[in-house]
Design a protein around this nucleic acid. Sequence first.
DNA 1: CGTTCCGGTTGATCTGCGTCAAGGCCGGAA
DNA 2: TTCCGGCCTTGACGCAGATCAACCGGAACG
Lengths: 248, 248
Amino acid sequence: MAHHDLQMSAHDCGDCPIRHRAVCARCETDELARLEQMKYYRSYQAGQTVIWSGDRMDFVASVVSGIATLTQTMEDGKRQMVGLLLPSDFVGKPGRQVAAYDVTATTDLVMCCFRKKPFEEMMSSTPHIAQRLLEMTLDELDAAREWMLLLGRKTAREKIASLLAIIARRDASLKLRTAKGSFAFDLPLTREEMADYLGLTLETVSRQISALKKDGVIELEGKRHIQVPNFDLLLEETGDDSDGGFLI
Amino acid sequence: MAHHDLQMSAHDCGDCPIRHRAVCARCETDELARLEQMKYYRSYQAGQTVIWSGDRMDFVASVVSGIATLTQTMEDGKRQMVGLLLPSDFVGKPGRQVAAYDVTATTDLVMCCFRKKPFEEMMSSTPHIAQRLLEMTLDELDAAREWMLLLGRKTAREKIASLLAIIARRDASLKLRTAKGSFAFDLPLTREEMADYLGLTLETVSRQISALKKDGVIELEGKRHIQVPNFDLLLEETGDDSDGGFLI
DNA sequence: CGTTCCGGTTGATCTGCGTCAAGGCCGGAA
DNA sequence: TTCCGGCCTTGACGCAGATCAACCGGAACG
């Protein structure tokens, strides 16, 4: 049973910040109009649970702003994050009745929700949505598999470096770079959330961040603001094949 | 550059063993006819590489019989399996030019290949294929996320038990059970492949299998044939929520 | 036949990370 | 101002699993 602030703000899809990246990316104006009829916004505060694993899902949604996480919990309480939801990412699976994971807002969060039934009907009648959703799901699958390599085979240091590189890269695609090869960004996650993401403990996360700092790979300003003086240096610490293609 | 036996056998889609589970599951007879025109079969021997990561992919395919694996390799040589392809599973991503993973046949393997270009055209013109592919991709994503939990948080013993449970469950859905709660099956993977799947070393895999045997959870007959006298006992070793069915 | 190879097992030892514990920093409430 | 509670860091120690190494059994092959 999720408690949440309900906030009805009537946005126009045309002005939507995620208009060109979300499930609706391919929709024509008439299709958008149809979507507008089944959509509503919800806001959540940082830390709130959006959905509990096992809950009945009566909607699917896109993240409009903020960050949410998908986590799984074992019976002994160990937790593993299995997904990080950023603006434009999609939540929920057409055809599934109940949520498979806990969804939690790690920052203040706004979601654009669609009632499930009409959304599913629309999916089968217009191909644009299903096509875009397939594309997005394939990307998520790739990300999940990259994460499997990280979880299964990387050392703690490589895991931290990989996470920082991913966040830095994502931020770089939104903001502009200060200077070639130099980045700065804020961590959107606590040490514990990073640990849950990386399959580590928060102590190990803390130690490895300190180690990377001591070795000059990163610089800290406060607990959360990170500067990367040389991005290539950071990449070398990830254990990934050099290059990884061109960036961004 | 993949070397492979090329084997042209003209099967009729109507007789296909994976007809009702593969991408083509939803297709009408006229759509099947169209697919038949772009399809061809390929056979691979156990151990052969089907595709190398980075290779250009000019086809997508369904596994007809046998088992293949998807693996990723780090620059220092550590390997992580990120997918297990069973009959009816799909290989390749529409819209992607190059393969992201190594695909290897672990048993003798037959694949039903479709030339990529016409397949993609068909995907955009008829909804049945895209719909089915979305469904399958969502299932794969769930499997990948379950695997992330395993890789990130389970102990070696829990990992082995989970793998055995998955294989047993899959076999049980095909064969019939000997007696309620008692299974027997053959491992389709070597100890090293299991290690690559589980993020362990082959020595640890071997030791944990021996330990499960000593504790009476499983019985071995040769290296590969496994009997599970009490499936619930095995499930308890996986560390998963006791039922996996309804909620607490 | 013996030889070699491959997959597997087992033992000895090492080590990276988890665990347990103490304490620091900072912002918000009283 | 002091106190408190989150969040984070650091140290000491132990252990699960990696590493290194020896050996086993069966199949392929001369």
